[in-house]
Simulated assay, not measured.
Amino acid sequence: MTVVDTRLDHLAVATRFAAAPGEWPVVPRYNPVDRWYHRLHVADDHEVWLLTWLPGQGTEWHDHGGSAGAFHVFGGTLTEDTVAVTDGRPPRVTSRELGEGAGRRFGSHHVHRMTNRSHQPAVSIHVYGPALTTMTKYRLGAGGLETLTIERAGAQW
């Protein structure tokens, strides 16, 4: 699969990969314990991941270690929660349901969590630029986000 200049639009890259499942090097699998994931592609300035989500599976609050990116829902429905923290005010969580064919871009300081809250499995394509080196996991409390761990590529995933 030829990938055009991805610095312009990570969502366009995710959409192109979603449009060509016959070219994926693996068939999506499902893990009853946790999300399943496989890196589909890596280049100098980005990487592409395939993820599967059974009902109830999701992530913790996390960021992408300074990488920007996008995701595209290939099949099923996922819910993305984002948080706004304003000094002196309780954090505000906004939820967005994204069905098959929907996608979203995000910047390098994006903190979110994603969950399959539906009753059907879901599959998604994620693009990160540059490639992930760390991910910070958070806990959301009354005062905002508290760092729990910083995971490193190659060590924790």
Rank of each mutant, 00 (worst) to 15 (best):
6 T>H: 15
6 T>P: 15
6 T>M: 11
7 R>W: 10
8 L>K: 15
8 L>W: 08
9 D>N: 15
9 D>G: 06
9 D>T: 07
10 H>T: 12
10 H>S: 14
10 H>K: 07
11 L>E: 13
12 A>I: 10
12 A>G: 14
13 V>D: 05
13 V>M: 05
13 V>C: 13
14 A>L: 08
14 A>T: 08
17 F>T: 00
18 A>V: 02
18 A>D: 04
19 A>Y: 04
19 A>W: 03
20 A>H: 14
21 P>Y: 06
21 P>Q: 06
22 G>F: 05
23 E>A: 15
24 W>E: 07
25 P>L: 14
25 P>Y: 14
26 V>L: 13
26 V>S: 09
29 R>V: 10
30 Y>I: 09
30 Y>E: 14
30 Y>G: 06
31 N>A: 09
31 N>G: 06
31 N>I: 02
31 N>Q: 05
33 V>G: 02
33 V>Q: 11
33 V>Y: 09
34 D>C: 02
35 R>C: 06
35 R>V: 02
35 R>F: 01
35 R>D: 01
36 W>D: 03
36 W>F: 04
37 Y>I: 00
38 H>A: 09
39 R>K: 13
40 L>K: 03
40 L>H: 03
40 L>S: 02
40 L>A: 03
40 L>Y: 03
41 H>V: 01
41 H>P: 00
41 H>T: 00
42 V>T: 14
43 A>I: 04
43 A>S: 15
43 A>T: 04
45 D>S: 12
45 D>M: 03
46 H>N: 08
46 H>F: 15
46 H>D: 10
47 E>S: 12
47 E>G: 11
48 V>D: 04
49 W>C: 07
50 L>V: 05
50 L>S: 05
50 L>H: 05
51 L>H: 07
53 W>R: 10
54 L>R: 14
55 P>H: 06
55 P>A: 06
56 G>M: 02
56 G>F: 02
57 Q>W: 11
57 Q>I: 12
57 Q>H: 13
58 G>I: 07
58 G>S: 09
58 G>Y: 07
59 T>A: 11
59 T>I: 06
60 E>I: 03
61 W>S: 12
62 H>R: 04
62 H>K: 04
63 D>C: 07
64 H>T: 01
64 H>F: 00
64 H>V: 00
64 H>Q: 01
64 H>G: 00
65 G>S: 01
65 G>P: 01
65 G>Y: 00
66 G>S: 08
67 S>I: 01
67 S>R: 01
